[in-house]
């Protein structure tokens, strides 16, 4: 990669890091891990910079890579560990939750009860407002899978969060 591309990369990294980290945080629930994953995604982006630059938006590629890294990491050999049911999410939520639980913690704790792919569906559909098709592209799965995973996720969130009208006004 030529020097000009290096400069473009550093500028892009500086500009996109905050947004990508927010996305990653919602999926993994840990700010530091989120930043680590975003770094990995950007490093991968660098490797294919020219091709991606020609074919699609760099930010979309970086976001897709970030999400896939997080979902795949949960299945990675030696790393996979998750509370799986009920209310056993304490160990997953970041240490910041030791203090008072505020509104931000509520949704992060609720998300932590979801498997990673469902978490990603919720974040992509309702935080990034992506369509079902766009979400399927990011996750590399069918639109039907996105619909079913999202429906299951919302059902779980409703059970955890109570009677909040979570998605009023949206369409699938």
């Amino acid at each position: 990669m030529a020097t000009s591309h290096d400069e473009e990369f550093t500028a892009f990294a500086a500009a996109s890091l905050p947004q990508l980290r927010r996305t990653a945080y919602l999926v993994c629930g840990d700010w530091h891990r989120a930043e680590d994953v975003v770094q990995d995604a950007l490093i991968r982006l660098y490797r294919v910079w020219r091709r991606v630059e020609r074919q699609e938006a760099l930010l979309a590629y970086a976001r897709r890579t970030t999400i896939r890294l997080l979902v795949d990491e949960s299945r990675r050999p030696w790393r996979r560990e998750r509370p799986t049911a009920g209310h056993g999410a304490d160990s997953w939520v970041s240490a910041s939750s030791a203090g008072a639980v505020d509104e931000r913690d509520v949704i992060v704790r609720a998300l932590s009860t979801l498997p990673p792919r469902r978490r990603a569906c919720v974040v992509l559909r309702y935080y990034h407002d992506l369509s079902v098709r766009e979400t399927a592209d990011v996750l590399g799965c069918s639109e039907g899978t996105v619909k079913s995973q999202t429906a299951h996720a919302l059902a779980t969130l409703r059970a955890v969060l109570g009677d909040l009208d979570l998605v009023k006004g949206t369409s699938s």
Binding site: P77, R80, E81, P83, T84, A85, G86, G88
Partner: peptide, 8 residues
């Protein structure tokens, strides 16, 4: 919880 806390 149901507490299958690790599976992989």
């Amino acid at each position: 919880s149901h507490v299958v806390v690790q599976a992989g």
